Structures are given as C-alpha cells and as structure tokens.
Simulated assay, not measured.
Amino acid sequence: MKMKTYRINFGILLGALLSLSFVLTGCDDDDDTTVIPDAEIVTLNEVALTGAAEAPPVNTQATGTFRGTYNMDTKVINYTVTFQNISPTAMHFHKGAVGVSGPITVPINPGSDPYSSDNPYISPLVSSTPPLTDAQEAELLAGEWYINIHSSQYPNGELRGQITR
C-alpha cells in the first residue's frame, strides 16, 4: 500500500489564518457609545431663538435654533444650538413660563471659561446636560424651561426660545 505525503506551505497556512482572524474580528461592534436598550427618548420640538421671545423683547438681527432629545433613563438632554449675528457671552437653560424671566436651571458651558477668547461659543454648539433631577425633569417635560443666549449688548438675554415636546 502506497502512502501519499502532503507538504504544508506554512506561508499559505499563515496567510489563511491571518485572513480568518481579520474576518472574525471585523464583525466586532465598534460602537463606543453606551446604548440603553428600550430607553425612552423624548424628542423636544425645534425651537426658534429670537429677540422677540425675550422678556422684555429686544430688537436684534440675531437668530438661532435649539434642537434636542431627552433620555428618560439617563435624564440627560442632548442638544444642538445654532446662532447667527451674535457673539454669545453666556447661555443657560432657565425655568420660566413664556414671557416671564426665571432662574437659571442648567448653565450651558462649552468649557471652563465661556468668557475667554480662547474658549468662545461656536455655532453649532453640540452638547449635553448633566443628569437632571426629578424636579427638573418634571419642569422640562411640562414646557417650563427656556433657553437663553446672552451677549454684551444684551446682558440679560438677546435670544430666547421656550422648550416644548
């Protein structure tokens, strides 16, 4: 009986093993964000930011928009603020009804010193809040929050918009 001998080309075998490892690791999930399955996400209405919405109203050429979502599980607002024709000196979320000034609830701070020329507010500003308290969540979802953009010309606020869902 004759026996066959097989020669193994280690270069081909190594290449095949490396290719297989790339295929298997290529299927790994690259998503670095934490996703909470079945998280309830509330879409907040897009809000026009205007001087007419200020309390009292101001006459300005500046405009802006607010877009955001609220995650009921993490209690975090993820948002984008855009603005034109304004150099913001400060931005905040406030508690207050339409036409009524109210206290700051959450500052919008793009860095350690929003007044520094090294750290200006830049449009679009994409950010998120720290987790809200239960009371803040109730106020937000009841439409009792507004966003306010301040400037040196209007230190009490140049642009405002009521946040609703």
Rank of each mutant, 00 (worst) to 15 (best):
M1Y: 11
K4S: 10
T5F: 10
T5E: 14
T5R: 15
Y6C: 04
Y6E: 05
R7C: 06
I8H: 08
N9I: 11
N9G: 04
N9Q: 13
N9Y: 11
F10N: 14
G11A: 10
L13S: 10
L14C: 05
L14V: 07
A16E: 13
L17N: 08
L18Q: 15
F22C: 12
F22V: 08
F22K: 08
V23I: 15
V23G: 09
T25Q: 11
T25W: 13
G26H: 13
D28I: 10
D29W: 03
T33G: 03
T34R: 14
V35F: 07
I36N: 14
D38I: 05
E40G: 09
I41Q: 07
V42G: 05
L44Y: 02
L44P: 00
L44S: 02
N45R: 05
E46F: 10
V47N: 02
A48R: 04
L49Y: 03
L49V: 03
T50Q: 02
A53E: 00
A55T: 03
V58L: 09
N59V: 14
N59R: 12
T60Q: 07
T60K: 05
Q61K: 15
A62W: 01
T63N: 13
G64D: 01
G64N: 04
R67T: 12
R67A: 11
G68D: 04
T69Y: 05
Y70T: 01
N71C: 15
N71Y: 04
M72G: 02
M72W: 05
T74L: 03
K75T: 04
V76S: 04
I77E: 03
Y79H: 06
V81H: 01
F83W: 07
Q84R: 15
Q84F: 09
S87R: 15
P88W: 04
T89H: 06
M91C: 09
H92T: 08
H94A: 00
H94G: 00
H94N: 01
K95A: 06
A97K: 02
G99C: 05
V100I: 07
S101Y: 01
I104R: 11
I104W: 06
T105R: 02
T105W: 01
G111M: 04
S112D: 10
D113S: 11
S116R: 05
S117C: 05
S117T: 10
D118E: 15
D118M: 12
N119L: 06
P120C: 08
L125N: 06
V126C: 09
S127N: 12
S127L: 06
S127Y: 02
S128G: 05
S128E: 14
S128K: 15
T129F: 12
P130W: 11
P130E: 14
T133M: 10
E137C: 10
A138Q: 14
A138S: 13
L140I: 07
L141V: 07
A142H: 07
G143C: 03
E144I: 00
Y146H: 03
Y146G: 00
Y146A: 00
H150P: 05
S151W: 01
S151G: 08
Y154H: 15
Y154S: 03
P155E: 14
E158L: 12
E158W: 07
E158V: 08
L159T: 00
R160C: 05
G161E: 05
G161Y: 02
Q162V: 04
Q162I: 02
